[in-house]
Write a protein that binds this DNA or RNA. Structure first.
Lengths: 225, 225
DNA sequence: GCAAAAGTGTTTGGGATACACCCATGC
DNA sequence: GCATGGGTGTATCCCAAACACTTTTGC
């Protein structure tokens, strides 16, 4: 291919939407920007992606250095989300952002170059760039994934109670589910099996602990909810 | 952000998977490469995306010039598919490809700089780059879209018979559907309405023509098949 | 009248939804 | 014994799937 002017690619960036559950519901990882543009605003962790590295490789490096999170060890699941490319999204110039979405559990940012913290998706601070849109899109995608795959495993510990499982669905869907119907249906999907262990906590009956059969993404034939 | 070496973004390219139906089933638009690499191989229409233009704008220009197809006029529906970014996918150097998928009808390439033609998805020639993977991924996505949206409208003329509608689904899904169940279910979705016109052709009973209520993508609450 | 595609209903099984009470524990 | 969350079953409705014959036309 021939060009009369030298070819100038857009800048390529990567951004991660990292979800986890806490007592307050679904949370997303943000970092506080230390430089312009959007200095002191919160933003998704990410950065430039250079020639010779895949966008996922670049993401691992950026999220580790800026937010202190190792996407391969701390996340149980990650997938590409969408590529945002409007010319105006970065005031410095045209930057195309390849975004990813992932899920983890009890993640604690360590040794990050920027301030990093999790925020409830229902109570986000004002965000840099188009990152509010990206998070909203990721949340929709996660919600869809829970309905037709076993992706919840990414939000739960290895062993979990059925109440924890249901709470995870409710946090992502943003609505309550019927306990009896939830259990009946989820157990019929044969994605999990019970263990011999019980979870004891507080002044009430202990709960049985379950495990996923596979800690790997798979699609369901019957969709869930 | 500071770099010790000047930042070198990867090349950014765009590629389109354009589907249409013909008597032989689902077809995809390909162009014959006139230059290295992969000279004389068939490939998806696409090309470089430069700073200052969105990937969809770049795609419109490339698909028009190389394959003679106007994605805004000739396609009834287009969406971003996925971003392919492995370092080895382009032998000239690292190129990240933002891909799109669209549907049209009776498309005829005109004034294209390269030889352009439609090929049945079940009988593709050997393809350049990772384009065989991209087409396979697009086909899966299209199939999924037909089950939970009204996206079929993109493959059909404004007025169509129920048999044409069913044939479109069968071509995309790659399997036969039951005529009575298909009609009952599709009509119950209230996406289409009958017109007063009939379609006459051949020595058999004429078929009623239907129209979509909306020629715009919408999601179904009840998923189809 | 015959070939060819259009059009049409019923039965059956299974999953979705709605709904309320007893159980095991700690204090 | 009481407060707290864990655990369980049934009835109804609607949808999915299976399945074959009549109708309308051109020749």
């Amino acid at each position: 291919m021939k060009y009369t002017k030298p070819y100038q690619p857009p800048t390529v960036t990567v951004d991660a939407v990292v979800f986890q559950l806490s007592d307050s519901g679904l949370e997303v990882l943000l970092t506080k920007r230390s430089e312009e543009p959007f200095k002191d605003s919160w933003a998704l962790p990410g950065g430039y992606s250079a020639q010779g590295e895949t966008t996922l490789e670049a993401l691992a490096i950026k999220v580790k250095s800026k937010a202190g999170v190792n996407i391969h060890e701390d996340l149980k699941y990650i997938e590409q989300l969408y590529t945002f490319d409007s010319v105006a999204r970065d005031p410095r110039g045209h930057a195309v952002s390849v975004t990813y979405m992932g899920c983890g559990l009890n993640i604690t940012p360590v040794d990050s170059s920027e301030e990093a913290a999790f925020f409830s998706v229902d109570n986000l601070p004002s965000l840099a760039y188009d990152h509010a849109n990206i998070i909203s899109y990721a949340h929709q995608r996660l919600s869809a994934k829970l309905t037709y795959t076993n992706a919840v495993y990414g939000l739960l510990p290895k062993r979990f109670t059925l109440t924890q499982l249901q709470t995870a669905y409710e946090a992502v869907f943003g609505r309550d589910l019927d306990k009896r119907n939830f259990r009946k249906k989820f157990l019929s999907l044969e994605l999990i099996h019970e263990t011999s262990e019980m979870f004891r906590e507080g002044a009430h009956r202990p709960a049985r602990l379950y495990e996923f059969n596979k800690q790997k993404l798979e699609s369901l034939t019957r969709s869930f909810d």
